[in-house]
């Protein structure tokens, strides 16, 4: 069944049928490509940007001081990292948090629905990048922050206004972005 190559009449209809699928696919690829990297709209996050931090008054680990609203009125932008010892992505972002601390950034932690012993063990194995750690045993502070999962990281400026919300673990490629947001918040 070999076909003798033959050139059938090429009407515009034939051409459309032949090149149409390719064209449609090209449009699809361009569309998807343009969407890469653009974050899909998350209704709840955007509402918090520009809002003041909710009132925070959390106990600390053992004798260490906890986390209070005063820690966000220092005049210097800080990061707030919402984490938990039971969350694996939080383990993954530990080196990045350490790196941020090393770059001179103040990072405050909020441990969500966690036992003090577990948090202490977590910080011992993964390193403790936090200036202050607050224990949010009931998860109420997390909810007030509008965070719906762990880990999440917020940029809060010196006046206690939330400037940026990072959802999910901090990967190495996010450090630059967070530094930029911190610099912006410091202005």
């Amino acid at each position: 069944m070999t076909d003798a190559p033959e050139t059938p009449a090429r009407s515009w209809l034939t051409r459309l049928a032949i090149y149409g699928p390719l064209l449609l696919f090209a449009v699809f690829v361009v569309f998807v490509g343009s969407q890469l990297g653009r974050e899909t709209r998350v209704t709840l996050t955007s509402k918090l940007i520009g809002q003041p931090m909710p009132a925070v008054n959390l106990p600390g680990l053992g004798d260490a001081p906890g986390l209070t609203s005063a820690d966000f009125k220092t005049g210097k932008p800080v990061l707030v990292n919402v984490f938990a010892s039971w969350c694996v992505p939080c383990r993954v972002e530990a080196p990045q948090l350490a790196q941020l601390t090393a770059m001179g950034v103040t990072v405050n932690g909020i441990a969500v629905r966690d036992a003090p012993d577990d948090v202490a063990a977590f910080l011992k194995t993964n390193g403790n990048p936090f200036a202050r750690v607050g224990l949010d045993k009931t998860g109420q502070t997390q909810i007030a922050l509008g965070s719906s999962g762990v880990p999440e990281t917020f940029v809060v400026d010196g006046a206690g206004i939330i400037r940026y919300q990072h959802i999910g673990e901090i990967r190495p490629e996010h450090i630059e972005l967070l530094m930029a947001k911190l610099a912006e918040a410091g202005r």
Binding site: P8, A9, S11, L13, T14, L16, A17
Partner: peptide, 13 residues
Amino acid sequence: PKHQRLVLLALAL
């Protein structure tokens, strides 16, 4: 066949 192909094409489109 050639004509039929065109008719089919038109139908499909």
